[in-house]
């Protein structure tokens, strides 16, 4: 798998391990079912993440928000957009850790993913080989502004208009 954030491809500091084997690893991703056992053996400063399906209900996701450092949401296919909503719900529930999309997304979804609150994307290597770093980063600068308010996208048209009306800079 290849990890990507808004700056490009980068090494993954997290390792996927069962709860029984996390000792000595600074950053690990556990299956959701092993979260509680993982938290029991967690050592100080150790970062813990979990893998979750995109079907986890909103309330359950919200209860995870304060327990872990990273939540990795599975995207079984790029056309399955449930992960965008789940990511948005987690952010709304106050999750401040790292939000990761895992699966065969396409570069044309990268800006959408970041806007919905994701920090990074973990791609199958074959996808990363076909759609290189440049294609992903290009998606972040296609639109100068976007229409939706309250999404984590820098430049919003509605607010830019208001600023222009008030005589300020967009």
């Amino acid at each position: 798998m290849t990890l990507l954030d808004r700056h490009g491809f980068r090494p993954d500091p997290f390792r996927r391990l069962p709860a029984s084997e996390i000792a000595g690893h600074p950053a690990v991703i556990l299956p959701l079912a092993e979260l509680q056992s993982g938290l029991l053996v967690r050592t100080g400063g150790q970062r813990i993440g979990i893998d979750i399906a995109n079907t986890v209900p909103a309330e359950e996701a919200a209860s995870l928000a304060n327990q872990v450092d990273l939540i990795a949401i599975a995207f079984p296919g790029f056309a399955d957009g449930r992960g965008f909503t789940l990511g948005r719900r987690l952010r709304q529930a106050g999750f401040r850790g790292i939000l990761r999309a895992v699966g065969p997304l396409i570069p044309d979804q990268f800006a959408y993913a970041l806007a919905c609150g994701f920090d990074e994307v973990e791609l199958p290597d074959a996808v990363a080989a076909r759609q290189g770093e440049a294609a992903w980063l290009a998606d972040l600068s296609i639109y100068r502004h976007s229409y939706q308010r309250d999404y984590a996208r820098g430049r919003n048209i509605l607010d830019a208009r208001r600023a222009a009306r008030n005589g300020g800079a967009a």
């Binding site: 965008f84 979804q109 919905c116 229409y147 939706q148």
Partner: peptide, 13 residues
């Protein structure tokens, strides 16, 4: 129209 255009959350319904 504007709100729904290239909506980051609702483009893969």
């Amino acid at each position: 129209r504007q709100w729904s255009t290239a909506h980051p959350e609702f483009s893969f319904l």
